[in-house]
Amino acid sequence: MSFVVQQIADPAAPLARRNPVAKLGAALLFSLPLIATLDPLTPTLGLLVELAILPFFGLRYGALLRRAWPLTLAAAGILVTMVLFSADRSGRLLLGLGPFDVTTGVLVDTLGLILRIFAVALPGVIVFATTDPTDLADALVQNARAPARFAIGALAAFRLLPLLGDEWQMLTLARRARGVDAGRNPLARLRLFVSTAFALLVGALRRGTRLAVAMDARGFDSGAPRTFARRQRFTAADSALLIGAVILAAAALTTTVVLGLFRPIIG
């Protein structure tokens, strides 16, 4: 298990240079309309837009694939869940699995949900892959007027993520050195995974408590005015990025409505 949080994009790329708050806001503005409909077309158009602008963020497709691999696990889980528990079994029967009928309606709903997860999650992956965490915390405080305690605390937690991967590896090696090994038994592997995850959680809580006490001791919650070593400026180009995200999201939603495929999630 490993957690990689460092910036992996070319910082000189046109959109990678934008203000972190602008990139985060654009990701939210572009993603929110994609969850307004159940059809698969809207998230498909959203995904095409996201993949088309990826080079402008200085990201390679291979690097994005390595960052977004957990989404494939989520997609597999959704596929199994929908096949087993979907309430809508309308449409033509494609495959009969005992009491579970796989119909065209099930596949359309599953495809729409999987595409929506990818389309909503990828903007966030792009933002965090192209943004330095310190710049993001500074921009949240300076441009979004977020509380300094919240922003700096989130930055500290973000910086500690790689330690979780190192600690997981250390716990695994320590248990193996004591002869605690599951071998090829899947149930034993599951029990060992759960116990290791619990030990990791306990260690993370203890480290978080110590970090919170240390931050309070250094005056992070003093309420005194803070100064900034690096100024984060919100320019006209950053505003253009936000406007562009709204226009592209509206265009995808409008295309679905015009084609008569819009299926509102409410109503």
Rank of each mutant, 00 (worst) to 15 (best):
A199P: 01
V258N: 04
V194M: 01
V194P: 00
R176V: 04
G46H: 00
D181C: 05
A204R: 10
A137K: 05
G244E: 08
G25W: 02
L47N: 10
L205G: 05
R67C: 06
A252E: 01
L253H: 03
A229K: 14
A154C: 03
A157T: 12
R67D: 10
G179M: 12
T131G: 13
A74W: 04
L73Y: 10
I53T: 06
T110G: 13
L41Q: 01
G219Y: 02
G25A: 12
L200F: 12
M215T: 09
A250R: 07
P147T: 07
L15D: 00
G208S: 12
V80C: 10
D216W: 07
L97Y: 14
L97V: 10
P11W: 13
L71N: 14
L48I: 14
A214G: 13
S239G: 14
T103G: 05
D166I: 11
T209Y: 13
L161G: 03
R149L: 11
L115I: 08
A212T: 04
V257A: 11
L45Q: 12
R231I: 09
M1K: 07
V83S: 06
I265A: 13
R178M: 08
G112M: 11
V180W: 01
L155Y: 02
L29G: 01
N143T: 14
L107N: 14
A129T: 03
A177T: 01
R178Y: 10
F118S: 04
A214E: 12
A217S: 15
L93M: 13
A182Q: 13
A177C: 04
P40F: 01
A22F: 02
P264D: 06
P147V: 05
T196Q: 12
F30A: 09
V108S: 05
A22E: 04
A188T: 06
D109I: 00
A63Y: 06
F128I: 10
R189C: 02
T81F: 15
G208M: 03
A236T: 06
S86Y: 07
R92A: 15
I243M: 08
T209H: 15
T227W: 04
A240D: 08
A217V: 07
R184S: 15
L51I: 13
